Simulated assay, not measured.
Amino acid sequence: MPTDEYILYFSVFFQQSLTQSAAIEAGREGEKNSIKESIKYGNKTTAVESVAKCTNLSQSSMADNYKTAPFDARFPNQNQTKNCWQNYVDYHRCQKIKGEDYEPCDYFRRVYKSLCPLRWVETWDEQREEGCFPGKI
């Protein structure tokens, strides 16, 4: 079964097609139109509810974990690779300096989890464990 992170990542990029296809499969034309309207006017709650129904997750767990990274003026372009990297490094620096129980470090974790592909994070975690991570933490 896919992890919650994978499902959230999937839902962000494919929520419109997934929710529309779910409504079509269920044969509910009215629901299909309401989902289209919700997405069109930015009602994320309805889209998240539909994705939760399709993936058999509770609505509250989807909505609680559905967060995107805020705008950062240091990274104004569409490519967010550097933003991902910087927040990953900042999170681990913060934990090293302040300790693992320091709550403000969680901000960096939430941002890098929102921006970074899971495979990159897994690779960087492995590199840190092996002592060959290229960043200065």
Rank of each mutant, 00 (worst) to 15 (best):
A52I: 03
L8N: 01
F133K: 05
K40G: 03
E5Q: 14
K98G: 00
A63Q: 14
K67F: 14
D4Y: 03
S17C: 09
I35L: 08
N87E: 12
N79A: 12
E100T: 07
K113Y: 02
S50K: 05
V12L: 14
D101I: 05
Q95H: 04
A22Y: 14
K40R: 12
S60L: 13
V121A: 07
S38V: 01
Q78E: 12
F10G: 07
K113T: 06
N83D: 13
Q86I: 12
N56T: 04
E130N: 12
S50C: 12
V111N: 02
F75T: 09
A26H: 07
R128W: 02
K40C: 06
E49D: 14
W120V: 07
I97K: 07
T46N: 02
Q59F: 13
V51K: 00
A47I: 03
N83Q: 14
D125N: 14
L118R: 02
P134Y: 11
E29K: 09
S38P: 00
T68F: 14
V111R: 02
Q78W: 13
S61W: 09
Q127E: 10
A47S: 07
T19P: 01
S17H: 03
D4H: 06
I7S: 05
G30K: 09
T55V: 11
H92R: 08
D64F: 12
T3M: 03
Y66L: 14
G135T: 03
E126Y: 06
A52H: 05
Y88P: 06
A47M: 08
C94W: 02
Q59H: 11
C132M: 11
E126G: 04
C84T: 10
Q20I: 09
P76W: 08
